[in-house]
Amino acid sequence: MPNADARRTVPGALEVVEIERTFLREVGSVFWFIMNTFQETMERVQQGRAPFRAASFFRESVRAGVDSVPLVGLVCFFLGLTMALLTGYQLQRFGTERLIPGLVAIAFTRELGPLITGIMVAARIGAAFTAELGTMQVNEEVEAVEAMGIGPLRLLAAPRMLALFLLTPCLSTVSNLAAVFASSLVCKAYFSIAFPYFLDLVKDSLLIRDILTGILKSFIFGLLIASIACYRGLTVKGGAAGVGTNTTSSVVTAITTVIGCDTVYNVVYTNFYPT
């Protein structure tokens, strides 16, 4: 029946339009959130005053950065171990196991280190930021800050955003080192590649460009994760249930954004530097 088909397609199309509209609205909102936070913070700097409390920035840095080192390090250590082991056995069949150090080092510095770090930071810290700010929003603490004449974005979001922006590249470096170290253990134990030779192979294959691109990516991921988490936290509505919903949404959005942004970054990057 053609009419029935038409009835089915129209709502489908409308749903797609609605999803697109929601997506664009959300992207726009996060963009304006970043701009407003930056503007509020810079206005304060122009007045010759500290943009936010140093203690607040250091507390968030410890929580987001230092406290995440064991988790990020451990996960990337295991990933590096597995990657070296599995690729090693395949390469050994062709007698090219000396490619393992370069393969792991390039894969992690350019791609896996920032990506895995981004995903873990989004899950661990993004959720914490959203839940914390969401609870403050529900308890009228954010409104109280606003009522005092203090910019809540500058006071609450800016230190968190700056902490994650600066600490994600550091965590990414930790993850790279952990993975390379793990692969060096595998190379020594299974493929008889001694540590000095392993280091030479890593140095021969790695380019400064590989390291820089990974670090640049991490800065972007850190900013995006923090912005999404703070935005979701400060827009919580509907009490405790709202905090739960926005926390889940924050983690899902941040992880999806990190992966999507990574893909776009790689497409653009490989266009400029094909090798």
């Binding site: 308890n139 603490e141 009522a147």
Partner: peptide, 19 residues
């Protein structure tokens, strides 16, 4: 508005102290 708010004090029903 932020400057004007500095001349107004507000006490919330549930106090809204920063926890």
């Amino acid at each position: 508005l932020q400057q004007v708010r500095q001349h107004i004090g507000m006490v919330y029903q549930y106090s809204a102290l920063l926890s």
